[in-house]
Design a protein around this nucleic acid. Structure first.
Length: 317
DNA sequence: GCGTCCAGGTCTACC
DNA sequence: GGTAGACCTGGACGC
């Protein structure tokens, strides 16, 4: 194994653990990543088809953050590949974000004033990616399914179609590449990964990503939010909710029936819960008016702090 | 055990 | 342009 290491700075305050370790009870880059005491191990594909292992380690403290990134690869990487990975880490771990701007904007908000205290230094972590396929895979498996079903589909997809990587004494997997899903037999994929009707959507998106007929993450970010959303909803299986899972914009607010009920209780604690679909529309509108361009961060902060919010605001979440 | 319902959306046929 | 109904799968529930 070849290794390449680089120390990275982050804009303080920066909490490595809150950002990458089970954010909102979920994963950072991939459901099969490994986290142990200030270190995380994961794996990803570099285009085209090169798999690498990645270890991130926190060397600093909240007000003087420093992250050591180490890349593990079977063949020596080019400088360009190394730079691409480091750039993905900077983006995915939110190292450049100035979180103090967000804190200043929401410091008097009756809900967020608690969460920014409880989760001081947390960033909105994002998957390591240059194309939409990882996040589209997540979005498709979240649709019309309770969380344990989603988890089952993701685990099966990754262990059957991702690439297994053993390095630095740890074993983990990459997300499945678009090529591996595009070339898989549809019937076999459905059966092995228990995807049901979702197989056809996943394969449709895999083809679009592989043939580059849909925008990359960087291109989406350069578009206005509504235009970027319209581009994504052209894809079969991607509606409003799924597009907001994928979009990198700060205005994205991927609200579903479950989270809509939580946010409705927080926004309107004395109102009865409306129908599920109504709650989604009401919450979406309220979040846009109240949190504007900060609503994606607000979303992550609230869902990462439900126990504390329940106690402080005396709401049963 | 067995049948029925429905979930952390989206598409399509039909009006 | 709006909206029921269908869609995989598996856990919860009633009997």
């Amino acid at each position: 194994m070849h290794t390449f290491s680089q120390e990275l700075d982050a804009v303080p305050p920066y909490s490595f653990e809150l950002t990458v370790h089970n954010p909102a009870g979920w994963f950072w880059h991939n459901p099969l990543e490994v986290y142990e005491a200030g270190r995380i191990w994961t794996a990803l594909h570099l285009s085209p088809g090169k798999a690498i292992g990645l270890r991130l380690e926190s060397l600093g403290i909240l007000e003087k953050p420093k992250i050591l990134a180490t890349i593990f690869s079977r063949r020596k990487l080019t400088n360009r590949d190394e730079n691409e990975v480091i750039e993905m880490v900077r983006e995915g771990a939110g190292l450049r974000d100035n979180i103090l701007e967000f804190y200043e904007a929401v410091k008097t908000d009756p809900i967020l004033k608690h969460t920014i205290h409880d989760l001081y230094g947390m960033r909105r972590g994002a998957m390591l990616r240059t194309d939409i396929f990882n996040s589209a895979t997540l979005a498709i498996t979240l649709q019309n399914a309770p969380i344990n079903r989603t988890d089952q589909m993701l685990q099966l997809l990754i262990t059957n179609c991702g690439q297994k990587m053993t390095f630095d004494g740890k074993t983990t997997y990459t997300w499945p590449s678009p090529k591996s899903i595009m070339n898989a037999d549809a019937e076999e994929l459905t059966k092995k990964c228990k995807l049901g009707y979702r197989t056809k959507y996943l394969q449709f998106i895999a083809v679009a990503v592989q043939r580059q007929t849909c925008p990359k993450i960087k291109e989406l970010l350069e578009m206005p939010f509504e235009k970027a959303k319209a581009e994504l909803t052209k894809l079969k299986g991607i509606g409003e909710y799924s597009s907001e899972i994928i979009l990198p914009h700060g205005q994205a607010f991927p609200i579903d029936i479950w989270s809509a009920q939580i946010f409705h209780k927080l926004f309107f604690p004395h109102r009865p819960l409306p129908s599920k679909q109504e709650a989604v529309q009401i919450v979406r509108k309220q979040a846009a008016e109240r949190w504007g361009r900060w609503r994606r961060l607000a979303f992550v902060y609230v869902l990462s702090d439900l126990d504390n919010l329940s106690q402080k605001l005396k709401v049963n979440l």
